[in-house]
């Protein structure tokens, strides 16, 4: 079970957080200009990174802020956490 450092609250147990998937999925500025395939990529396609992965976490049972976690998916080492 991870210990995650909330950028606002500090080190906390994983049970206080909820997971929000891959970070840096930018919502397209003009969705209607995209092809079905491009929109599908934004909507469904996520990386399955082996190694350091940037992901979103929410301190849902704490300050309720979203923030970024860089986590190694092989050994679960958290390299860094920071604010949006």
């Amino acid at each position: 079970m991870l210990i995650i450092k909330c950028p606002w609250c500090g080190d906390r147990d994983e049970t206080e957080f909820s997971y929000g998937g891959e970070a840096d999925i930018k919502r397209p500025v003009a969705p209607e200009a995209l092809s079905d395939e491009e929109w599908g990529d934004y909507l469904f396609m996520r990386k399955n990174t082996k190694g350091v992965f940037k992901e979103q976490w929410n301190h849902s049972a704490g300050c309720r802020r979203w923030f970024i976690v860089e986590r190694d998916t092989v050994n679960y080492d958290i390299k860094a956490t920071y604010k949006f």
Binding site: G20, R27, R64, R65, W66, F84
Partner: peptide, 13 residues
Amino acid sequence: MSWLEQWHQTEWP
């Protein structure tokens, strides 16, 4: 509530 917060905080801060 948390969905709205997510859009606000992560996409349109």
